[in-house]
Simulated scan of single mutants.
Amino acid sequence: MSGQEAGARPFKLPQSVLVVVHTPALDILLIRRADGGEHWQSVTGSKDREDEPWEATAAREVQEETGIDVRASGCVLSDWLLENVYDIWPQWRHRYAPGVVLNRERVFGLCVPAGTPVVLSPREHVAWQWLPWRDAADRCFSASNAEACLLLPRFSGAGAAP
């Protein structure tokens, strides 16, 4: 069991997704973390297992955190083929195996129809808002998330310069 005692919660894998949920008008859904502060972000989450495909992780995390089904009519999930590697914050390193300090994050976009309902997982997030892409970038607490918001016009095909 990865060096853990029987019955212990498994360590998180240092492989995660970042999913920029947006409308065709480039309004981005941001959700506020439940663990305090003003930490606004896009959908994020780790793979459940090493062989879980990135797309499956993205779809699962979007469903768990927002209630949005990526297969619903009008929704388009796209792999931006971008990856970020960053230091795991010290206060969250206990969730990972000893010695793990870096996380690999794969970036996706999810275009949804305007007015798509959002149903948060209250144990993870306490509020949500739709913001124009530049405003969303300014609101994100994570640098990689802010950068992804600024890249949205390029990856959505809208053609605006980030």
Rank of each mutant, 00 (worst) to 15 (best):
H39I: 03
V43I: 13
G45W: 04
S46E: 13
E50I: 06
P53H: 03
A56V: 12
T57D: 01
A59Q: 05
A59K: 04
R60K: 03
Q63S: 10
E65G: 02
G67V: 10
D69M: 01
V70E: 02
V70P: 02
R71Q: 14
S73A: 15
V76G: 07
S78E: 14
D79T: 05
L81P: 00
E83C: 13
Y86I: 04
P90V: 09
Q91G: 05
Q91N: 13
R95W: 13
A97Y: 02
P98A: 10
P98G: 06
P98H: 09
G99V: 06
E105N: 15
R106K: 15
R106I: 05
V107F: 13
F108K: 06
F108N: 03
P113H: 06
A114W: 02
G115D: 09
P117W: 05
P117H: 06
V119R: 15
L120W: 06
R123Q: 15
H125K: 04
V126T: 11
P132H: 04
W133P: 01
W133R: 06
R134N: 00
R134S: 00
D135Q: 13
D138E: 14
R139W: 12
R139F: 11
C140S: 00
S142Y: 14
A143Q: 11
N145I: 05
E147V: 10
A148T: 08
C149F: 02
L150P: 04
P153R: 01
R154I: 02
S156F: 03
G157F: 09
